[in-house]
Design a binder for these strands. Sequence first.
DNA 1: AATGAATGAGATTTCATTCAT
DNA 2: AATGAATGAAATCTCATTCAT
Lengths: 192, 192, 192, 192
Amino acid sequence: MARPPKAREPLKQAALELFVERSVHGTGIREIAKHAGCSEAALYRHWANKEALVTALFQEHMNDVRDLLENAIAKETTLEGKVRAACRAAYKLYDEHPQVFRFVLLVQHELAKSIPPDMRMPQDVVADLVRDAAVKAEIPKPAKGEEFLLAAAVIGIFLETAVYVLYQRVPGPLSRYVEPVTQSALRVLRAK
Amino acid sequence: MARPPKAREPLKQAALELFVERSVHGTGIREIAKHAGCSEAALYRHWANKEALVTALFQEHMNDVRDLLENAIAKETTLEGKVRAACRAAYKLYDEHPQVFRFVLLVQHELAKSIPPDMRMPQDVVADLVRDAAVKAEIPKPAKGEEFLLAAAVIGIFLETAVYVLYQRVPGPLSRYVEPVTQSALRVLRAK
Amino acid sequence: MARPPKAREPLKQAALELFVERSVHGTGIREIAKHAGCSEAALYRHWANKEALVTALFQEHMNDVRDLLENAIAKETTLEGKVRAACRAAYKLYDEHPQVFRFVLLVQHELAKSIPPDMRMPQDVVADLVRDAAVKAEIPKPAKGEEFLLAAAVIGIFLETAVYVLYQRVPGPLSRYVEPVTQSALRVLRAK
Amino acid sequence: MARPPKAREPLKQAALELFVERSVHGTGIREIAKHAGCSEAALYRHWANKEALVTALFQEHMNDVRDLLENAIAKETTLEGKVRAACRAAYKLYDEHPQVFRFVLLVQHELAKSIPPDMRMPQDVVADLVRDAAVKAEIPKPAKGEEFLLAAAVIGIFLETAVYVLYQRVPGPLSRYVEPVTQSALRVLRAK
DNA sequence: AATGAATGAGATTTCATTCAT
DNA sequence: AATGAATGAAATCTCATTCAT
């Protein structure tokens, strides 16, 4: 019966944009509020403090990406189909919302400690993908622990390609590299 | 000759340790000075301000890594030898100075803008390596621009593996993964 | 007749508890409202603002104590009986509602200025008691103005004993000290 | 070799004056700094925060009063002499520095929790005085624990008289009441 | 030369109070 | 009528940097 929250979404959007443009620490509460068209104090009704806002943005985006990957993979049956679908879905997201990717790049290592240990992350989806492919004999059986190494390599190829597009070392859009990234990933996974 | 500056190295070491532990922005001049055992003002004898210190740390480390890679590569003749030597040299450095790697991870995207356009970076070494291998026909001739894509993939495999060790998703030391990382990289590079 | 206000008493009780636990200034409207199970705005239906709530709590308690003392004294005829009855009544109140005593201790000096000059306070009851005893020659006739000094001493004995129980320098309950406090007070009052 | 601290004492003096005049919570850092003629940040070099300043002021004053009492008592041999000397010394201090007394009154109950358990307080001096008098048979032997009750009464008489002067219910200066307070205290102590 | 006290500018956060729903 | 979101104003505190000693 009180008035419905009107500042929450604008604040999230404004924060994301400004964090990406001027870095998290280079962006003050004042700017976020002004950009969102509300008062500074409004932020504190929705998040305990600036850090909580940053963490929430990060974890929500990670959850989104995780769900995106899981949904894309669920629709496919072969390893190649899954890798391609996952890559395509994620690159499509980043083409449409480049800020999200940039934000994650900026904060991932600083926020690594803040991730709840039981939170399922995008990288867990990839690890499961690799494990599942091994079970189904779509790839050679990896030695114990080696599956994580393979997941790391796949994620590395995927991410660093996106970084190269972001920094315009190769021309965008990112989606045009779905196929070569998929093939490189498969090549690594299918190693004897 | 003037006596060597006394506080410079302790300050760099203190800054690196604290930046890694509590983030750059979470570390104040006071703490750096105290940790280095000197006064706050001493820092300003060696760098114009805090930002200059951070930038210098980053760029010096990037130069170190670049030289390390170039020296390692120069001693080898085959593509496989070069990739392996580069990977081994870098992983050895990171095993011995894990803080350096962590620091680079933390600041790389925020400091990307500060890099002088003519500064030769480690990634340029990898790009040259790929280009050179193509010229020597050690790998299939990449389409125009594709060489950067290959470099990105190689760097991604290399970096993400190091990240996995850093976060203890796979056990260290990093050097034990020189061989699988090398083989994965080669597999990607030699793609038909 | 209008239905009775629903939030008033819970708000008073919540405020008292939190003020005592975390100090007046350390307790916000939000906390009071939450603790009372109502909205923040509800407080403003009953008091003009936070300060008015604090003042009302204080003055109401002072009035309660004053009435308590007067009723106790009215039932007795001798000085000793009056002192004992007053002491017993007040200590019984504080044993049953220790928060009230603690609250009064916390705010008394800060709120001293806010007391209306014509408001009859507990200390006035004691002053009257002393004056009355002098008139009835139950104690030696005090010099002009000395009656207040005696009242101060009696109140001091009474209060500081309660403080000692509150801080557990002597064991409670407070009521067990009615007799020694009464005797000490009488000894001071009956001074030659 | 750096410049000597210039703001510390002015800050303490300014804080004391303003706390007494407008209450602790009613006085901002800004006002303290302005009144002391220095910047707000200077305060944080000397105390961790506002609360630490308040606590330090309180505890330092308590230590001063404790030493004052102990010195006064040490010079006397009889119980009466000691009580009178202690009372005279303290009342002289409060006549000369009424702010100190007012400040202690304002904050004592809010800061009670902050006192280190091993800190010797003025009230401990009084308790020792009573205990010592009992040992020397200057007063009747108190029952176990009763010595604290006597100390409470003595302190109550002493303090509440000072409160009455502060609030001008009896005329000052406080020192004029040394004798009646002493006699009242002795009367209570010598109770059969 | 070296220190660390002092500072100015600004950051974050708090809070009583108001107001749209 | 009652809520709790929003606010304005201020409070506390931080911090890189300067400067007197």
